[in-house]
Design a protein around this nucleic acid. Structure first.
Lengths: 108, 108
DNA sequence: GGAGACTACTACACATTGCGGAGTACTCCG
DNA sequence: CGGAGTACTCCGCAATGTGTAGTAGTCTCC
């Protein structure tokens, strides 16, 4: 039901993942995440996560004006960000595998 | 690194899963989880989760004395617990699949 | 030109939940 | 008796996602 708790600690990873291919600004990252299936992500969570990752030194940031609305604050992965993404992905995969085994045991 | 955040919302599921096959008491559930690969789970988290699930009406509970130490508080799944387990498993699988796609995109 | 929708971001207070540490208490062994 | 292992409780903390409110820009439609 409540996917919000599942996101804990994983939103970082998801945000890094959608920024891997191309820089993006908050509102855009939000749309990418929702399009990817994370439909219940709240906007404040995304903005907060971007700020946190930036402060942690994983993202670059630059502001660009837009002609379709307010200015946009773009974020992109730097070296630290890529490393973090790689590490977090491994951690996640390991964790997901563990859960998988736990849940499937005795299912047969 | 820090798997503690990944556990958020998933520990409930993991606890339900290890109780699916047989009733268990806190200390035992802790060992089962660690044996299953969740080695960093803290004991307080498990006891807390058991209490929460019990209060939520998903578990039955009964105390049994032990000859190898203090009394043991056993917990077991009731109907609500089994339903919760089934529902949470589905939610988790869906979520894990979504993340999987997100992480593998462009990997090729 | 004003209302409303969509875009885009910030700030703050809050709820959930896992963790650490301290404390209690029982059994067994040396 | 002291220490280890077992078994549980309580309390306060920290991390993080959410809701709400607020600011502000563009565009459309009546």
């Amino acid at each position: 039901m409540d996917t919000s708790q599942l996101l804990k600690g994983v939103l970082d990873l998801a945000v890094l993942a959608v920024l891997r291919d191309a820089d993006g600004y908050g509102y855009d990252v939000l749309r990418r995440l929702r399009a990817a299936g994370l439909e219940d992500v709240a906007d404040a969570s995304v903005y907060g996560t971007l700020r946190r990752l930036f402060q942690a030194g994983a993202l670059t940031s630059y502001v660009q004006p837009s002609e379709e609305g307010p200015h946009r604050k773009y974020y992109g992965l730097n070296k630290t960000g890529h490393e973090l993404l790689a590490r977090s992905t491994k951690t996640w995969n390991h964790f997901a595998d563990t859960m998988s085994v736990l849940l499937e045991e005795e299912a047969a």
